[in-house]
Nucleic acid binder design. Structure first.
Lengths: 390, 390
DNA sequence: TCTAATTAGTTCATCGACTTGACTTAATAG
DNA sequence: CTATTAAGTCAAGTCGATGAACTAATTAGA
């Protein structure tokens, strides 16, 4: 009961910004008395600060604004990706307080080495947080692969598979603040979109993560849809052409084979491997309006559209957010995707889902990871309270 | 608080069957005292009965079993489908206490006439319930179409579209017990599968409803996944062949065009329209192992498999349940579906989702509808309590 | 400048709901 | 017939939210 009301209050403060106790009481339906005592508790744990006179020009006694404490608990996000490692520290107000991105070709390195370097990255982030007076209360690691609880089923683009990744993290990064979590890169990028991108205006949405593979994060009522084993959103292996070539997943004509980064490059007559240089070349050609390039991207967009028609019919989202590579390609790929979606949902629903491009950069996932830690703190302040007492 | 504990207790009793108060206390973590008082409340509303001595052969004072009251509150389910109307009354123990199915070709009739007849069907069901001493505490109507809140967006196989269906129901069936709900036939059939079919062993599952159209109900942690506008699970319009013919939905190569009832009949060289006779003929031919028939069904199964690979990748369910027409065709269609799913998810997850056939009959949806009313009573006994006081 | 009005926040008695621990009840074992 | 065991109730206590009255700080207006 107390925990629920603490979460309720903190949620409102986080969502609507600083507020007086009186307004909080109005908004939450609790009495002024209850709000006062609970705010005292939240302030005691360090989650909120009740200072800063605020008087909105009205008459009557001025209220004291209760605001999220930006100098207390914080969250650490980490990301292992194909060609970089990243870290990020967010304060409770979801402001970026530290950010780091280290380029590294992780495809060619053994897991232990990558995790050792991740440990160094994390160490630096934690030091930076400490110097700013932040108390990191949890960590979340983003990985470009399919996770099943504490197991990394497969991360094709890293060449990793069937690793007890949670245990490996515990072993190589013992200093990580608890609780420590793990999630798919697309899932966390989707959450980043919710908190740092389009926000609540997106409604329920599917975030399409076009990195070297293609994944998706599905957000329903502000929370991730993970599926029974945590591997929902594998958009890259939705079949878009049953007559297509066999895929390494065992299927045939998977989206990834037609609209994945290397497929686009190949189809545009560029390099086979998906190096950053080849990508830059593709973008140059697109800007020069070279037909081979634009047509390759259109074809990919059409295929992505087909997969998304399936997703839209199954999931009925409000919005589709193009992320990663696809957000870079948005000027050329958005139209074919939207066209495919638009025609295909005429009779079924009032309007086709809107297609937008993410404005977040390549390391969206690491933002989402840190954001997820913050989200947990905000939705479950009781945990922090219990930890403090124990 | 009280409401939550009432729901907790009732849920345990419903799930595990009759129990003594002492065992309930153990199971829920509440104290014996609390359990006693709450059970008294539940008994007072008529949700449970505390009689029936039960002594499990142990020594000590024998306990009194607290059981769901099968002669109190009940739920009414109604269904409008293409060629029948159905009603069903369930008691709190989810036993069928009344069941009715009236054949009627609703395609050829105006909405008002259909609803008038549904009213008569409902009237009979309510009378039957009253005679058995049941108090019907709510109703749910299953419809073969896409619903958006109180609106029927489209029911292609009835030829209905854009109807304010909730208001029409209120107008034509004013005597329906409140609260009254509406849902898609596939969604409710999926719930029926959860409560009367495979049950909790299915885990998260996708129920494929093969009627004249193809729909799906998605069940996640025991609850329906409805999407942002209530039209999730439109499996029939997932594209399975981008090169295929245009569909009335505006898309191309939708599953329904390849694996819908009339598509199968056509592909088997049988009648164009999907009459029950044509269907019987198909079944005969299948039993006779006629290649035209078995191949037609195999093709449909392969297409269904493709759509389900997409669904499995996006939703990550434990199980796929073939329902409606597909459960009838299960002996011939299950293998191709499973084959498609099996090969396509090799690297992505530990195991492909299991494919089972529903054992429920054609009117699964009406069971699910009545079951949904019961579910609401069990998960929210507080509402009943509040109603009784008011 | 002073008072009334207005709004913010606190104090305190109370109430509702669960818990604790002792007690009663009803069975079996020996 | 008594000891033991388990089910269930009772009375007192605790925790957390509530409501009414009160104090505090400001503006509007006389």
């Amino acid at each position: 009961m107390r925990d629920r009301n603490l979460a309720l209050l903190l949620g409102e403060i986080a969502r609507r910004g600083p507020m007086t106790r009186a307004r909080l009481a109005e908004v939450t339906g609790l009495t002024k008395t209850t709000v006062s005592t609970l705010v005292a508790v939240l302030a005691d744990i360090g989650l909120v600060r009740a200072d800063g006179r605020v008087h909105e020009g009205e008459r009557g006694r001025p209220g004291v604004a209760v605001a999220i404490n930006r100098d207390g608990p914080a969250g650490l996000g980490l990301e292992v990706n194909v060609d970089y490692l990243a870290a990020c520290v967010l304060d409770l107000g979801r402001r970026v307080r530290y950010r780091d991105l280290v380029h590294a070709d992780n495809r060619s390195r053994p897991v232990e080495e990558v995790l050792a370097e991740l440990g160094a990255v994390a160490e630096r982030a934690l030091n930076a947080a400490r110097q700013q007076g932040l108390a990191v209360k949890g960590a979340m690691v983003a990985l470009p692969g399919v996770l099943d609880h504490r197991l990394l089923r497969t991360a094709p683009n890293l060449g990793w598979s069937d690793l007890p990744i949670a245990d490996l993290l515990d072993a190589h990064l013992p200093a990580l603040p608890r609780p420590t979590g793990l999630d798919n890169e697309a899932n966390l990028a989707a959450l980043a979109e919710l908190w740092f991108g389009g926000g609540a205006a997106l409604g329920d949405f599917v975030y399409v993560s076009g990195e070297i593979g293609i994944g998706a994060g599905i957000v329903v009522s502000g929370r991730l849809f993970r599926g029974a084993h945590g591997s929902a959103g594998e958009l890259g292996h939705v079949p878009v052409d049953p007559a297509g070539p066999a895929c390494s997943c065992g299927g045939r004509g998977c989206l990834e084979q037609v609209a994945g980064q290397s497929a686009i490059l190949r189809s545009a007559g560029l390099s086979q491997d998906s190096s950053p240089e080849a990508l830059r070349l593709l973008l140059r050609r697109l800007e020069e309006r070279r037909p081979a390039a634009t047509e390759a991207v259109s074809r990919a967009g059409a295929a992505l559209g087909v997969a998304l028609i399936g997703a839209a019919n199954l999931l009925d989202p409000d919005t589709i957010v193009l992320g990663g590579l696809f957000s870079t390609l948005a000027p050329w790929i958005r139209r074919p995707v939207q066209a495919a979606l638009g025609t295909a949902s005429g009779r079924l629903r009032a309007t086709a889902p809107e297609v937008t491009a993410s404005a977040l950069g390549e390391d969206a996932a690491v933002l989402g990871a840190a954001g997820a830690v913050i989200e947990r703190l905000i939705t479950d302040p009781g945990a922090l309270l219990a930890a403090r007492i124990a």
